[in-house]
Design a protein around this nucleic acid. Sequence first.
DNA 1: TATATTATGTTAAATGTTTGACAAAATGGT
DNA 2: ACCATTTTGTCAAACATTTAACATAATATA
Lengths: 207, 207
Amino acid sequence: MEREISQAVIRRMPRYYRYLGELLESNVERISSNELSKLMHVTASQIRQDLNNFGGFGQQGYGYNVKFLHDEIGKILGLNQMHNVILIGAGNLGQAIANYVNFEKLSFRMIGLFDVNPDKIGNVFSGAEVRHMDELPEFLKDHHVDIAALTLPKDNAEAVAAELVNLGITAIWNFAHVDLEVPENVVVQNVHLSDSLMQLSYNITQI
Amino acid sequence: MEREISQAVIRRMPRYYRYLGELLESNVERISSNELSKLMHVTASQIRQDLNNFGGFGQQGYGYNVKFLHDEIGKILGLNQMHNVILIGAGNLGQAIANYVNFEKLSFRMIGLFDVNPDKIGNVFSGAEVRHMDELPEFLKDHHVDIAALTLPKDNAEAVAAELVNLGITAIWNFAHVDLEVPENVVVQNVHLSDSLMQLSYNITQI
DNA sequence: TATATTATGTTAAATGTTTGACAAAATGGT
DNA sequence: ACCATTTTGTCAAACATTTAACATAATATA
């Protein structure tokens, strides 16, 4: 019986991955949950509990091998394979995200940018030419796309998402300020910047 | 004795605010927790529980008045007052966020953009001229700043954050891919895009 | 005006998450 | 080779969050 791992745990994995990456760059060979806990300001117990969801990566009396653990978490997060990303919406945010995705070394690659605004079509950002949305079906015949990032105004987001799903896209990185209604085989990861800003605003007033 | 409200609740408030805003625009006058729960795909119990953290906004047999509740949540989130925002880092992402902040109607206003890159200084984005970081102390004498957004590479983020804190900034919206170490009177809200993308990547592999 | 219905606020139960404790295993020093 | 130390993996307790249940109060209907 497969036990599903909670999103609370998953949310923490990228952070472990980041710290381990930094340790790796500093040529640290091994680390104990206790040392790591001090570095990350979390409890050692949580680290061990989290990692154990995926199996025993450490060794008693030794701790964790940094490179090994880094690799394993990378695999867990699917970073051992390339993800082709397209972007819908070539505005300010789209350009920034295009840049960002390509900059992230290794496992994500921006391979296409789409928009409906004639002024944008043909421009080149981060090495990709902006194409018209109408070209998307044809594009998808020739290219395997793992993730579509939605960086467009919220008014069009729901319709575009529906279209993407129709065309077989199963993972959406959503920057539009709406909650997309998609079939359950489609994964949506929201980045709601307003929500984040409002949470900050709330916390300001609490000090 | 003030009971602190959990961040789990706070994270949901902006979403309520958004849905209520949409209802308001659709001229819906009242709504029950049950109707709202269907709209938002959460339990009615959670909605009532969440709202009750801040006081009784509804009425038995009637439900909640949309406009009133929207306003109250706005106040809770601090949206009834203007927040002046500056941005550190006028790259791609900085420009996008500058645009974004100004676009958010009402309570946030981008009043200054800073960078160290000579090529960027003097450019105008979203109505604000990019100034050199050296001008920041002087700028802060003349302007009240509520929030500093960090849209710069991670290597400089920690140092810049320290400088901001020194200059009296107490709220940071952090887009850099590091965890900032700040005094406890300073609020940091992280937007770690890589983490979000990795979480998506994980969830893709789980389907 | 009386009664059935609706729907909140709140209590308690159920569920989920985090932390503490410790046996067992490996390491490292002598 | 032995023993003290380190440190994991895991169990159980503590804590937090979510959901269900329901008494109470207001509304709506007849």
